[in-house]
């Protein structure tokens, strides 16, 4: 399914990131790897809207934790958990360990390089395939 050029071909990935230039870069990397980017969106409200309209077609999500003005990404994480969509955190906030409910999620620390992000998404999707039969 995946190939060396476009390992994320056909994957639909939600991108939540409030920093414009970072969002644009990540979007570029994901598209380059063949993925279809949902978003990017910069706040919780828009993200929940997108999740609602994309229904069950999301494959994974990349979530920035701190969305500015004190807004945190956790409501989105909870929604994705409910839908069974795997996600990872991409964050500048090193204190995520203080939130025990999310402490065992994959967490990438900014600044993030493109190959780091793509490998983490691939790992996330692979893990999902392994877990899927067990949880169903």
């Amino acid at each position: 399914m995946s190939n060396a050029q476009e390992p994320l071909l056909g994957r639909r990935i939600l991108l939540v990131e409030d920093e414009y230039v970072i969002a644009m870069e990540m979007e570029r990397w994901l598209r380059g790897a063949g993925a279809e980017v949902i978003g990017p969106v910069s706040n919780v409200e828009h993200a929940l809207d997108r999740i609602a309209t994309e229904a069950n077609s999301l494959d994974a999500a990349i979530l920035d934790v701190n969305l500015g003005h004190g807004e945190r990404v956790y409501p989105i994480a909870d929604r994705l958990d409910a839908l069974g969509v795997p996600y990872l955190f991409a964050t500048g906030d090193v204190r995520i360990g203080a939130e025990p409910a999310y402490g065992n999620r994959i967490r990438l620390e900014k600044p993030i390089l493109s190959f780091e992000l793509l490998k983490a998404i691939e790992a996330l999707l692979t893990l999902e395939r392994v877990i899927d039969p067990l949880s169903s």
């Binding site: 920093e19 970072i22 870069e25 500048g92 906030d93 620390e109 900014k110 600044p111």
Partner: peptide
């Protein structure tokens, strides 16, 4: 950290 991300981008 965000700034470094911005710089990198």
């Amino acid at each position: 950290r965000n700034l470094l991300g911005v710089v990198a981008a």
